[in-house]
């Protein structure tokens, strides 16, 4: 499927991804090429083939419900762009 500029802008918005307006036509071309390439898959009959999500078809392992990790908030927040009183700061959301 060929994507036009409006479709690229919509996808970029869904992904919260800033792209320059001037670059949109090139993204539209590249992404359309990739999708056209991927559409080779349409020619394959896959009716009744169960999807394979995990190469070894392993099931998710469960562990006992026990505390194994300690609180390392200060360490992890030391690399955050903006924190105060143990909280991450972002621009005001509610007026």
């Amino acid at each position: 499927m060929a994507l036009d500029s409006a479709a690229v802008a919509r996808i970029a918005h869904l992904a919260r991804l800033g792209i320059e307006t001037a670059d949109i036509p090139e993204y539209a071309r590249n992404l359309s090429d990739i999708l056209a390439f991927v559409e080779q898959l349409d020619a394959v009959a896959t009716n009744g083939v169960p999807p394979l999500a995990h190469p070894l078809e392993a099931r998710q392992r469960l562990r006992p419900d026990e505390v194994t990790e300690t609180d390392r908030r200060e360490l992890f927040q030391a690399i955050a762009p903006s924190v105060e009183a143990g909280l991450y700061l972002v621009p005001k959301v509610i007026e």
Binding site: L35, V49, P51, L52
Partner: peptide, 26 residues
């Protein structure tokens, strides 16, 4: 990111992601 977002977006999941996972099994 954009290809993935598109492939997983509403209405396209079966055509892309599910299909690719089936081919993966083949």
């Amino acid at each position: 990111i954009m290809i993935g977002t598109y492939a997983l977006s509403s209405g396209y999941y079966d055509a892309y992601y599910l299909k690719a996972q089936q081919v993966r099994r083949l």
